[in-house]
Design a protein around this nucleic acid. Structure first.
Length: 178
DNA sequence: GCCAACGTTGGC
DNA sequence: GCCAACGTTGGC
């Protein structure tokens, strides 16, 4: 009779051991990574755009953009919670399906001038940096560390919060430093 | 093109 | 206030 069915199971051991380095890394990071004091209290976000409509390259070209057209209450409330200086991951939906860059809130929320009715808001973003390597949706879904991202849980939400831990982790695994 | 997830609308 | 029907988004 086997004493320990789980750890004698080669499939289980293979999966568990492959996750271990990543989870250990996430645990140790809180001690190892010195936080930039200026960024300590910052909130992080993720915004989505169809690259055919407005891409990260367009944002770099324009220098600043008004994030208009949001017509979803949850997304609007997230826009309203943003503070000047907050950083946001820029995600290309549809054809690209990857996080491609980082942008920054340059102006906090104000009424959406494109709204003909209703109570809607915009913020202004400026580009910060293109990710060294884009992070694909497939890679995000395959990464056990990133399973709590709203991007996976609610694929329709266009403006969502991201934890500081996940934000730093995404910069780390894409070899991106700000 | 299909479908799942989610939000909105409107009848009751 | 509930719920069915419908529309939109976005992944596959």
């Amino acid at each position: 009779m086997r004493k320990n069915i789980l750890w004698n199971n080669p499939t289980f051991c293979k999966v568990e051991l492959s996750l271990f380095p990543r989870l250990l890394y996430v645990y140790l990071r809180q001690f190892l990574v010195p936080l930039n004091q200026n960024l300590k209290l910052m909130n992080c976000w993720l915004i989505k755009s169809e690259p055919e409509a407005f891409s990260y390259q367009d944002l770099e070209k324009d220098g600043v953009t008004m994030w208009d057209g949001v017509r979803n209450y949850a997304a609007r409330n997230n826009l309203r919670a943003m503070k000047t200086g907050d950083l946001a991951l820029f995600y290309h939906s549809l054809s690209d399906k990857a996080i491609v860059g980082v942008c920054k809130v340059s102006k906090e929320h104000y009424p959406d001038p494109t709204a003909t009715s209703g109570d809607w808001s915009v913020v202004d973003f400026v580009p910060v940096k293109t990710l060294t390597r884009p992070l694909s949706l497939a890679a995000i879904k395959a990464d056990p560390v990133l399973q709590e991202l709203p991007l996976i849980r609610n694929s329709r939400l266009s403006v969502m919060p991201v934890t500081r831990e996940d934000f730093d982790y995404i910069l780390e695994i894409t070899d991106t430093s700000l």
